[in-house]
Design a protein around this nucleic acid. Sequence first.
DNA 1: GCCGTTTTCGGCCCGACTGTTTTCAGTCG
Length: 582
Amino acid sequence: MSISRDAIADILEEIATLLELKGENPFKIKAYKNGADVVRDYDGDIIHLAANNELKGIKGIGSALQDKLHELATTGELEFYQNLRGEFPATIFELFEIQGLGPKKIKALYQKLDITSIASLKEACETDRIKELSGFGPKSVSNILKAIETKEKFAGRYRLGDITALAETILAAIKEHPSTSRAAIAGSYRRAKETLHDLDFLVATKQQADIIDYFTQLDEVEEIIAKGETKAAVRLVNGLQCDLRAVSNEQFPFALQYFSGSKEHNVSIRQLANKRGWSLNEYAFTHKDTSQPAPPNVVDERDIYRALELEFIEPELRENRGEIEAADAGELPRLVELENLRGTFHNHTTASDGRNSLEEMAQAAQDLGLQYLGIADHSKSSFQANGLYADRLLKQIEEIRQLNEQWDDFKIIAGSEVDILKDGSLDFDDDTLSQLDYCVASVHNSFTLAEKDMTARIIRAMENEHVTMIGHLTGRLLLRRDPYAVNVDKIIDCAARTGTIIELNCSPRRLDMDWRWWHKARDLGVMTSINPDAHGVEQLQNLHFGVRLARKGWLRREDVLNCMNLDEVLSFLSKSKSERIR
DNA sequence: GCCGTTTTCGGCCCGACTGTTTTCAGTCG
């Protein structure tokens, strides 16, 4: 019986939710949520361990969870969970996706009005039936309707980080087929869009029908939407639509270019082809105007750009935002690469809400080949995250200094993710902050300030000499929560003026600041730091997403703080902010 | 539920904000 760790983690999450609905002990609920995190992020084959009753000693997994995980790992099912599910309709989970609704309200809606889905909730709001319930006034109704609208706006989209593993698994399966000569994922995935609604696979083969058959029969496929000679569309078990196009080896570069998009980029590219008397489609150049020279031979995608006398345009840049003009002028940036990173900032440990100790995080960073690891645990106002008071912070700094003595070529860099309070002041005084090597300042509350107040709040923080960088600038949670109101233009100007770095938070849920702003920020001399915001060792891997989005934002190695080597970065941090301005 | 341990049960999770209230409940981070 095989069950994935994600599936097990999801079951634990659902149990937590169902226990909330039942009004269970909050600490019990938290234990299940925590258990889900542990399962999802455990550094090792936790399913194997669970099946063999070898979970003892894993922090957060006590005897009750050990038994339940054993049952799940060996049978794929859990009686306790099945019974719990039986107490509520299956659709009730979707109500938790509505901002502002929690277990108490959902329970009341269900028990008093028999509301079990977003559709019935919407109807109850529109017919004012909901006002029969105490605690639901006119403001609640409009807030719920607004939240439903937000939810619908995001429906059918997926976060890049959530589907990368799945996408690469399917790609690997396609490549394994003996008839495959080349294969790739095109579309917005290749362009590193932060959210997508489908995946576009492409394969070069002489046996198109074979591959199409094979693709539609993959384990991950739930439903076949369409299936023809050269093209198939399927829906995966998680609802994601995947298209596959099978082409010849000669057509492959053209198809890859065409299906990578963006549409707007391709329109411009085809216009350039037209000027040369060629027409370009997903299969080939056609020589339309024979009074002009014939198109050259094309064996890979680079040849297409070369034929148009353009520098090769990396897929991440293909959004028709000036990349064609820059390629024409030979002025495309040399984009940052994952291999350029030498360290990272903004990571958490068990001192606040991380799951690994300082030592474990340091070890993981070294395993990735990094020269330094910036620690930035939460400050005291982030109660929910077990934020540090000054005394604990100072102790942690001391601990870091001691740990550092054992390494010559690796260092932990002592920082803090300090809360920016409502008025723009910081959660620690300057005296405390001056003890740190660096400081990430972030907004974690009062998200509903008016734009000018929020902007002024963040600007005030940036003007503090001790604030090295701003964390997750807009607070957005992709597909969940819109950015709070903040004037990013003004923030970027302030960053340039004060020598403050803006983080590129590469948690797949955030990818904040948005890639669309980086080009401008870069041109004003603003630097970024690609930060995983890791709450466990495995999340250091998210640096990969940060690099892709940095590339999408036209960033080069020299624009990224953590491309500096250890000596350079220590020297940089020892300078005053005004000296850091480029 | 988990953890730590004075091995048997108490502590764990605090404050801001919102909306509906009239003194507070629920949600969120």
